[in-house]
Write a protein that binds this DNA or RNA. Structure first.
Lengths: 147, 147
DNA sequence: CGGCGTTAGTTCGTCGCGCGAACTAAGAGG
DNA sequence: CCTCTTAGTTCGCGCGACGAACTAACGCCG
């Protein structure tokens, strides 16, 4: 039990520190990671990140102010907005994502490849079993299954 | 990799939700958990939780306002303070801790006992391997944290 | 003893984050 | 049309984290 909780805090600390070094907060990091695949509407982002829409406005505001994302009008719906990475945001998130993966991977460097596979498999099942409520995608999303 | 990060977010979400239901924030929950074993000084808490001392003042202020901890003068050192659980705080943290463990345990209910042991063992080793910097205790004991 | 650097905590101002409630504006549907 | 719903924003609140500046007690060295 303790190991699960402690592991969570450990990974979180690594994630947060990595973000800090790239000049963003971990929330902004998550936003950028979600946008890696494609632009999204505000409501959609709120659902994916588990945030109220009013929280989203502020998060996107700050990230936009940093030049990493931009709001684009949705041609299909005049009141909707598509949030997309800027060129700068794309460059940053690519690096941030890779670097964070590297660091998390490094956490398990004390394990043999077989052990690492076992850990990934078990954890993957735990995540899948509990993904019932809100799917909250992290760095990858698509990179979920295997590598 | 993804599994590690997603697992971390999952456990975190469970922890935060449990805290919320007990009327505290997850930071206050961590503070209370650290104080379960014994009272601590402010600086000591700062080191354990990885917070600047000015952050600690506020956190203890708010938790004290909620009646869960209290500042006691340190008989040995007139400028120091010992932060201790109140009776109310003790009751709450005992329940919060048990309930949170229960919930985290429930996350792995899809695993066989043997698999759960394996997961715990692997994760335990990962945590131990990375406990280099500051130990910051969670519900139970220690976890790691950077810088 | 007296002076002085160290350590423990607090205060202050700033920023990020998350929320609900109230609001505007644009689709959708009878 | 007129209404209902949906998409987002605004506003005000409180929590959380930080660094810089400050106060007060400690301790040491001469």
């Amino acid at each position: 039990m303790g190991a699960l909780v402690r592991g969570a805090f450990l990974v979180n600390a690594v994630y947060a520190e990595s973000a800090r070094e790239y000049g963003i907060t971990s929330q902004q990091g998550q936003l950028l990671c979600v946008l890696m695949a494609q632009p999204r509407g505000m409501s959609e982002l709120g659902a994916m990140l588990g945030l109220a829409k009013s929280s989203l406005t502020g998060l996107v505001d700050r990230t936009e102010r940093n030049g990493l994302v931009q709001r684009e009008p949705d041609p299909q719906d005049m009141r909707a907005v598509r949030v997309a990475l800027t060129a700068e945001g794309r460059g940053l998130v690519d690096e941030f994502y890779a670097e964070t993966c590297r660091r998390v991977e490094r956490l398990s460097s004390g394990l043999s490849p077989a052990e690492r596979d076992a850990l990934g498999g078990l954890l993957g099942r735990v995540v899948l079993d509990n993904e019932v409520p809100a799917v909250f995608l992290e760095p990858g999303e698509g990179a979920a299954r295997e590598h």
